[in-house]
Design a protein around this nucleic acid. Structure first.
Lengths: 175, 175
DNA sequence: GACGCTAGTGGCACCCTGTGCCAATATTCG
DNA sequence: CGAATATTGGCACAGGGTGCCACTAGCGTC
């Protein structure tokens, strides 16, 4: 609903007042449902993080670190066909609107933490150490690069781009 | 000057009004020197980017891609001993204050572009392609991970952390 | 020195996001 | 039904950021 406004009027040009009016609630109430205007675009991202965490935890211990990460990240970003258009819209906003681009970093921080903790648990190291932290950053970088590429090329397959990018990036993760 | 306020009072608690007053100018004039309060912390970052670009361009063509990137990034972040404390302060703010953390993404975008363009020029590919873009993200991830580690451990050597992190990350950059 | 041009400055009003506070209104439970 | 409790909405406010305009400082020219 709000997304419709964002895509027609533009994110910056849409005020919280507008969104609230469209939703039939007051401005004040809007801020009880969303911590910020930015958060509207992200939906239930934190729930998705739980899935990612679970998916990583479920990886067989015999599976190489890089493979486990790749599979989890790819499936984390798998989409039902009818959601592709919406998701493309969403990601397009996140990666192109400065305000959202900036805000994304705060969302990604948690995402990186999930990856770092998994890597730490696998290597028996401190999640705050260089290797797990680096792994989080590299995996994130790969994912974002894949998304940018996906948005730039409508014909491209997100899943493939992600697999390729994560694959390459994981070369730097192996101890 | 403004940094002093940030480190004593805190970034969020310091208003633009405060900064302007401390600098002996008006609020309105402040915004003619800085596009935003966030930008105060970044100083002349774009000038530094020019150096990075030049440093990369100056790398001998025979030097492997990864080595060229590592050397350029390490020297880009080299500091005179008397600037270490200030820089630590600055980076600590950038990496811990949410508002600055978010804003940093916008700064990093240019940084990544520099790396991507260099990689593209080396591999004769499109700077907007997956590989150069991925290289930008991986190098950035490595650099940020190194910085986080540096801040977490006062005894650590930034140069070494950067070299290590970039070294690992560049495994994913080689064609 | 007087004049006019220009760049820098500051003040003002304004919009927007985000938050604290409190009254009003639903909703649920006894 | 009545009381306890969420949910809501209105209001006022702080703070970042911007457009507009008047004022002033500086500087070259005559």
């Amino acid at each position: 609903m709000a997304m419709r406004l964002f895509s027609t009027v533009g994110f910056d040009a849409t005020t919280v007042e507008d969104i609230a009016a469209a939703a039939g609630i007051s401005r004040r109430t809007f801020f009880r449902y969303f911590a910020s205007k930015n958060d509207v675009v992200w939906g239930r991202f934190d729930e998705g993080l739980g899935q990612l965490r679970a998916s990583l935890a479920a990886a067989p211990a015999t599976q190489p670190l890089g493979d486990a990460l790749r599979e989890a990240i790819v499936s984390f970003n798998a989409l039902a066909p009818d959601q592709v258009a919406v998701h493309r819209q969403r990601m397009s906003l996140i990666l192109s609107v400065p305000s959202l681009q900036a805000h994304s970093t705060l969302m990604y921080a948690e995402w990186r933490r999930v990856v770092a903790e998994f890597v730490a648990s696998r290597t028996g190291s401190d999640p705050g150490g260089l290797q797990p932290r680096l792994a989080g950053h590299l995996m994130l970088g790969a994912a974002v690069a894949a998304y940018e590429q996906w948005l730039a090329d409508p014909a491209a397959e997100l899943t493939e781009l992600l697999a390729t990018a994560v694959q390459r990036a994981s070369a730097g993760v192996a101890s």
